[in-house]
Amino acid sequence: MIAKLLRRNETYLFFVIMAFSLVVTMINPTFLTVENMFDLVKSSSGMAILAVGFFVGLLAGGIDISFPAIAIAGQYIAVNTLIALGVDNLLLAFVLSCAVGTAMGAINAFFISAFRMPALIVTLGTSNIFHGALLVFVGTRAINTGQLPDCFKAFGHMHVLTLTRADGTTYGLSVFAVVLLGIIVVTWFLLKHTLLGKSIYAVGGSYESSKRAGFSINRTLFFVYSYIGFLSGIMGVMHLSLIRYSNPNYIVDTELLKVIAAVVIGGSKITGGSGTLVGTLLGVVMMVILEKNLVLIGLSSYWHQFFTGLIIVLGVSITHYQSKLQSKKSLSFAD
């Protein structure tokens, strides 16, 4: 059991996170408090959801970089419809945002599966199409807190667990945690216990062998990219509820790199077919802790992008160096 655990990437990542948290707590004792943990969960659950989506895409062998554009499109269309209709219903917002997201994901899937184009180039194109279309056809005006329907604000403040501080004021665990947990459980179940999940791993491993094993590549890819779009739609509404402001011009490029970095240090192979959900989530935790504490170590926020890039490069290097060593052992000529 222990020997098996020691062979896994996740174990090492877990210890690195532990060690890092320990160091941070020594410098800043408020870091390892329940309140701070609740805060971190709330502010980073959106990123975690995107990471889950990107991870599923990666498993199927494709790099989808359109999710920031999809998230902003779903969010902005949903909030504008709600304002135009004068309705104040959170469920409708989620339905709208997820519908927009799923539709955009399906467009990605169509081009990727029907023409066998590289997912990265397709999504580079479609993310510009989606974002450009949003700004041209829907609008460019930002929605500020005053105009925002109340349901978003209420959703942002909703707690599932309320605790009381020593001075009598309260704090709590945001409902975001429940949404995130739900998505994790659904995705885990899908990947581990359904045929669809097996086909995602198989298609990511090799188109040819999965085809011969009788999996439908097109159907699998269609599901994967629509699912990424769906998750992006959820994230769009959550992000809006968190910052209570919707700016369609604001497209989160730094978020994109952070999500990729998180998934990559989680040990997922960029060529598809290999990786675990646990690894991805640990990767997210690592990225969040690092980001929140760079200032503590005395580095300004200018260092964020540098570190994100460095983590991606180091993360993929380690994962691929391991597989290179393995393929050398098995006398492969094709590396």
């Binding site: 790099i63 590289p118 990265l120 990729i260 990559v264 960029i270 060529t271 991606i312 490069v313 993929v316 290097s317 691929h320 160096y321 597989s323 290179k324 590396d335």
Partner: peptide, 8 residues
């Protein structure tokens, strides 16, 4: 290291 160019 053998990392695919796209991600490197």
């Amino acid at each position: 290291v053998g990392v695919p160019a796209i991600i490197a």
